[in-house]
Amino acid sequence: MAGKKINPIVKLGLELGPIVVFFAAYVMLRDKAFSFGGTEYDGFILVTAGFIPLILITTGLLWKLSGHVSKMQIATAVLVVVFGGLTVWLNDDRFFKMKPTMIYTLFAGVLGFGLLRGQSYLQFVMEEMMPLKREGWMILTRRLALFFAGLAVLNEVIWRTMSTDAWVNFKTFGLTIAVFAFFMTQGGVLQKYAVEEQPEDGA
């Protein structure tokens, strides 16, 4: 099924909106505590509880408007439900803080598995957006697999050794900037291995 055209601003809002809302809500509620059913929950737990339906709603809207949701977005939504649910159920913020570790470990593992088979699974997902020669896809996939593995390790270090405030800032801004910076630094590969369009006969 071909994807539908969607306003880029709307698409960006649906993809990044939940993260922005999570950060804003955390800033407002981080120093507060709430009691439900005789159990006390801090602001982080409450914000996590709200983040779960929000990510499901925005993912559903993205699918409805564009007719397509990537496997990465589906995996992210599933892990948010699982680890966010455990965080709220057990009243333990460690589970939600581990979520990025699981996400990036999963992505690195999938890409690494493809590389072991001599394939670039990244190419299957992004070939229409960035037509590259096979060598280019393999280089980009190796780099991205290592990058995701590095982010998984970094997330573990930060949430285990730093404050919740530091982790929220890292999750909201650090991870987003890191992913953006990674692709910005791959211009040499994209240029060197770009597939040149063949001129039509008789043109």
Score class of each variant (00 low, 15 high):
residue 12 L to S: 15
residue 200 E to R: 13
residue 171 K to P: 02
residue 39 T to H: 01
residue 111 L to D: 00
residue 86 L to Y: 06
residue 86 L to W: 03
residue 43 G to F: 00
residue 202 G to K: 13
residue 119 Q to G: 06
residue 114 G to E: 00
residue 54 L to F: 06
residue 27 V to T: 11
residue 83 F to V: 06
residue 129 M to Q: 14
residue 57 I to G: 05
residue 21 V to A: 10
residue 145 A to L: 04
residue 82 V to K: 12
residue 80 V to K: 00
residue 60 G to D: 08
residue 190 L to D: 02
residue 195 V to W: 01
residue 12 L to C: 02
residue 155 N to K: 00
residue 80 V to R: 03
residue 147 F to D: 03
residue 118 G to A: 08
residue 66 S to G: 14
residue 54 L to D: 07
residue 160 R to F: 10
residue 146 L to I: 12
residue 9 I to V: 15
residue 49 A to K: 13
residue 170 F to P: 09
residue 111 L to H: 04
residue 182 F to L: 12
residue 135 E to V: 06
residue 197 E to W: 01
residue 73 Q to Y: 04
residue 86 L to G: 00
residue 180 F to D: 05
residue 193 Y to C: 04
residue 201 D to E: 11
residue 169 N to D: 04
residue 95 F to W: 09
residue 55 I to V: 15
residue 49 A to C: 09
residue 53 P to I: 02
residue 130 M to W: 11
residue 192 K to A: 15
residue 192 K to S: 15
residue 65 L to P: 06
residue 196 E to P: 00
residue 68 H to M: 12
residue 112 G to P: 02
residue 60 G to N: 02
residue 16 L to S: 15
residue 71 K to I: 13
residue 1 M to E: 09
residue 41 Y to Q: 00
residue 138 M to W: 13
residue 153 V to E: 04
residue 185 T to M: 13
residue 112 G to L: 07
residue 74 I to A: 07
residue 24 A to D: 04
residue 170 F to V: 07
residue 49 A to N: 06
residue 166 A to K: 11
residue 6 I to M: 12
residue 75 A to V: 12
residue 185 T to L: 15
residue 112 G to A: 13
residue 121 Y to A: 01
residue 62 L to C: 12
residue 102 M to D: 04
residue 118 G to R: 05
residue 110 V to D: 10
residue 174 G to K: 00
residue 192 K to H: 15
residue 114 G to Y: 00
residue 71 K to S: 12
residue 139 I to K: 13
residue 183 F to H: 14
residue 154 L to H: 04
residue 165 D to I: 08
residue 73 Q to G: 07
residue 47 V to M: 00
residue 47 V to L: 02
residue 12 L to D: 11
residue 12 L to F: 14
residue 33 A to R: 09
residue 20 V to N: 10
residue 5 K to Q: 10
residue 139 I to G: 02
